[in-house]
Simulated assay, not measured.
Amino acid sequence: MEQLQHFFTNKPVRTLLDIGTGTGNFIAVLKKVFDNHVQILGVDPDEASLEEAAKIYPEATFKSMPGEKLAFADSTFDVASISMALHHLPNIQLTLKEMQRVVKPHGWIIVNELFSDNLNAAQEVHKKMHHFRSSIDRMNGVCHNETFTRKEIMEQIEASGLTISIAFDHDIELKSPSPAEISTRMQKLTEMLEQSSSHPDYEKMKIQLPEIELSLKKHGFQMATRVVVVSQVNK
């Protein structure tokens, strides 16, 4: 993300908190944006994901905790980030407020989130698959919302009191999936659904699988566009 690198050029950043870090996917981006002196701490309530992240990034630190209640003192970090996780949050505003609390005065918050509008056909397939998975999670009592529109994401950020400095869209290159990759994706969706075979909505969800497979074969698969927003903390 060259725009992100350019924005943070000559801005001193030594401590960074990554919220909802999962297996650490966004850390790879953060390490390219910031120099090797930055201390990265990733938090997530899922301990299994954090164990995987620690194997990939042994130089970073990981702790299990929710974004809505961060166990850090006020004004601890230069930057806080959250990537591909807004739609997983039970309370977006509370998490954004907590991020502002733990960031130093005039520090920065980075939001990287996929959105649901103005997508091409291959990206619509990704959205359809994401909504399928999110429906299954909700069937099992897990907070997993459908994809927000770009406008909704921006409104959530501004509603938290943040001042947006830059915002840009980021696309990941389209790669047509092979028959084997399509089969693997469909198998994962099927296995995920089968874990909820006793749920009243199971049959309704099951009939969506052939339609998703047909869309994959017809349009391919591309990650939905993401909006990257950098905001300054006003305190």
Rank of each mutant, 00 (worst) to 15 (best):
V103Q: 04
A85M: 05
G107N: 01
I110K: 08
H106V: 06
N140W: 08
C143A: 00
M84K: 12
D169P: 05
A167G: 01
D117M: 10
I92V: 14
L174S: 01
H130E: 07
H88N: 13
K127S: 07
A122T: 00
P90K: 15
Q100D: 11
R138Q: 08
P90G: 13
H131C: 10
I166F: 09
D169L: 09
L119A: 07
I172R: 13
E124Q: 15
S134I: 05
I153Y: 03
G107S: 03
L96N: 06
Q156W: 15
A85T: 02
L162S: 03
T95N: 01
R138F: 01
S160Q: 04
I153L: 08
N140D: 12
Q100F: 12
K151I: 00
M84I: 09
V103F: 06
A85I: 00
S176F: 15
S135D: 12
I136S: 04
L119Q: 15
H170F: 07
S83F: 10
L114W: 11
K175I: 10
E152Y: 04
E146Y: 12
E155T: 09
I92G: 08
E113M: 12
F148K: 12
E173Q: 11
M99Q: 02
D117I: 06
E98H: 11
S165Q: 06
Q123C: 02
T95Q: 05
I166A: 07
K128S: 13
A121E: 07
I157K: 13
S160R: 03
K97P: 02
I172K: 13
D169I: 03
H131N: 15
F148S: 14
H126I: 05
S83A: 15
D137I: 04
P105L: 04
L89G: 02
P105C: 08
L162G: 01
F115W: 08
K128F: 12
V102W: 03
E158D: 03
A122E: 02
T147C: 15
N145A: 15
A122L: 03
E113K: 14
E155K: 11
Q156Y: 15
G107D: 00
S165W: 01
S134Y: 08
H87E: 03
S135P: 00
D137V: 05
V103M: 03
N91A: 09
L119R: 09
A159C: 07
L174P: 00
T95S: 04
Q93N: 14
L174M: 01
S160F: 01
I166Q: 14
P105W: 03
L162C: 01
L86M: 10
K127D: 05
G107T: 00
H126R: 10
C143D: 00
K97D: 01
H87N: 09
N145Q: 12
D137W: 12
H130P: 01
M99N: 02
M129Q: 15
H106S: 13
V125P: 08
H126Y: 13
L174K: 11
F148I: 05
H126G: 06
M99R: 02
E152C: 00
K151L: 00
T163K: 15
I82L: 11
S134K: 07
E173V: 12
M139T: 14
V142M: 08
H144Y: 06
H144N: 06
H170M: 04
K97H: 07
I153P: 05
T95I: 02
F132Q: 00
V142D: 09
I172F: 12
W108G: 02
